[in-house]
Design a binder for these strands. Structure first.
Lengths: 341, 341
DNA sequence: CTGTTAGCGCATTCAA
DNA sequence: TTGAATGCGCTAACAG
């Protein structure tokens, strides 16, 4: 009897001897309903465990109480933890999360965005894989629903964003390394086609100069955020006749690759190379040695994005688009040491 | 003009000089429609980029092309990677994933299940945090939609399941340790209230006996899957006057806790303790030393579950409930060594 | 304060 | 092969 289909507003109305309109009113505790009637209806609702059909409701109201979230993948802890943050607030606010991954493919980003749009989600949180994909930008423009970008920037689109301030933590990292006597500091980072790639490099360069150090072109590698790139770049870095004494791996998978490369050639951290990684994940936190990292609160970032989105959904007439900045911090562990020479 | 709302079937009908019924027919390529008419309609559909409203469609058909997935959290790589697997197949089949976490709380499991049910998802994939929660069981029973359990068992519920065969890998692990000369092998595992807790312990015990070894009660710790429990148990294990020479950490977070405890007391792997962990995550794969693990294909498991669910959704009249078993394998790395004595 | 009515966009029965 | 009419379950005018 208590199958999925459930009772309808009509049955409640009959049982309570009122019209469906009245039932609807008490259900949406709107307008004026005589308390006696209200209670009577509510009693019946509870009795038969009535639940309004959100589909029918959505058809009428054009609101679905759902949020679409697109990320490149769920395997990377950084993204899945952000997703956890998003879910934390959505769940608490009775929104449902429609999650979908794009496999680092901007075409898929666009396609998933279209799909979620057709599903009439009330808003989007996007951590797309390519900021300047025309298909994607077109798709974003088609959407009239609010969008919050996660550490991304898209020119000419009306979006809010939660952005990481990489400079704060990077500056501390460079200062720290300098205090240990390091002068040559290498850098391995991802593609400049998304904000993290650009901004991390910019932060590094700026922090170096502020510290009176000039980053060398031969010590900085910019390519992809993937592990392989980290490994290759690290190998090339160390192949130099006179390699740097310290390295900033600007991406957690890059860091994994670096560790792998180091291990393969029997180089030891921090004895042979001082290492700082960006993004604090299990491997760095609990590794041997534990790796000093530039850290940011992934889960919190997801929560901020979700909160921002819900605010805008509820307050659609806002004009100003917000950018929320999240600072990074240096967490010192045991992967750096003073230069001996 | 190309807002979210979009055109309706009615507009198409007018433009094509046919009835809405006919448009609906070509859209669902059903029944008999004269080719000429069909082409005319399709042309207009393409021209104005019409997309049917899934909400309205769902209201009518009672199908939503959505799947609800409930897991305890997205932070643990094991779960988020399974979620990736689920998404892989759903996305490819034009289903949308409604994801929701329960924070290890069976009440929340039940609540989220109710929420997703009320959203009329076409089916569920569940990795709940407590198999015998009455609220949860009640909620599961209320559902007429198909359910696939992820490494869980619920008595008296009509569900399919994708189950891990822990014995295969565990047997190899014990055999391997025995071949290295180990006789005393410790075990740390999670609560017996969910299948992984029970089944891993059973596999361990069985494998030990098959190897002619008797697990000692003082060497086996069963409590929770969390890191803290792993750390505490490991400490207590090593506090023994004559501790075991090898340890099976039956859970990835437990393994993290073990590593942490080991590190804190300056114990080295594998010199002071041979270690095998269950579930292959970054920290073990790329740690120093890399940890020998019992491994299973997380992403594949998610895919299997999703495929199974879609099959059942499309073929609702199946009677037999399937259990799909996924084997585990031993991946030997560098965390075990032969006993010296 | 409450009931009647219309319609959200679509699929589907029944006639034609 | 096609069209007219009905209703999925609900909300929102509009009357009363």
């Amino acid at each position: 009897m208590p199958g999925d289909a459930g009772a309808t507003i009509k049955e409640i109305a009959q049982r309570a001897n009122v019209s469906v309109a009245t039932v609807s009113r008490v259900l949406n505790n709107s307008a004026n309903v005589r308390p006696a009637v209200r209670d009577r209806v509510l009693a019946i609702v509870n009795e038969i465990g009535y639940e309004p059909d959100p589909i029918a409701r959505s058809l009428r109201t054009q609101a679905t109480f759902t949020v679409g979230f697109i990320i490149r993948d769920l395997v990377d802890t950084v993204f899945s933890t952000m997703a956890q943050g998003v879910d934390n607030v959505l769940r608490q606010q009775n929104y449902t999360l429609l999650l979908s991954t794009s496999s680092h493919d901007p075409e898929r980003d666009a396609h998933q965005l279209a799909t979620l749009r057709s599903r009439r989600v009330d808003g989007f949180i996007l951590a797309i894989s390519e900021e300047s994909s025309p298909a994607l930008i077109a798709e974003v423009r088609k959407t009239s629903k609010p969008i919050v970008l996660l550490d991304r920037e898209m020119e000419g689109t009306a979006t809010d964003a939660v952005l990481t301030d990489y400079l704060s933590g990077t500056r501390d990292a460079i200062t720290y390394l300098k205090s240990l006597g390091h002068r040559r500091i290498g850098y391995i980072g991802g593609a400049l086609t998304i904000r993290p790639g650009r901004e991390r490099l910019r932060a590094f360069t700026l922090a170096m100069r502020e510290a009176g150090l000039e980053p060398r072109e031969s010590d900085t590698f910019v390519g992809s955020f993937l592990q392989d790139f980290g490994a290759e770049s690290c190998a090339r870095l160390l192949d130099q006749a006179d390699p740097p004494t310290a390295l900033l791996a600007a991406g957690n998978q890059i860091g994994v690759g670096v560790l792998q490369a180091l291990r393969e050639r029997g180089a030891r951290v921090p004895d042979d190379l001082s290492l700082i990684c960006l993004d604090d994940v299990d491997l760095f936190r609990h590794g041997n040695p534990p790796v000093t990292v530039i850290s940011r609160p992934f889960e919190r970032i997801g929560e901020l994005a979700a909160n921002r989105l819900l605010e805008r959904i509820r307050n659609a007439d806002q004009v100003e688009h917000q950018q929320i900045f999240v600072p990074t911090t240096l967490v010192i562990r045991e992967s750096c040491q003073a230069v001996s020479a």
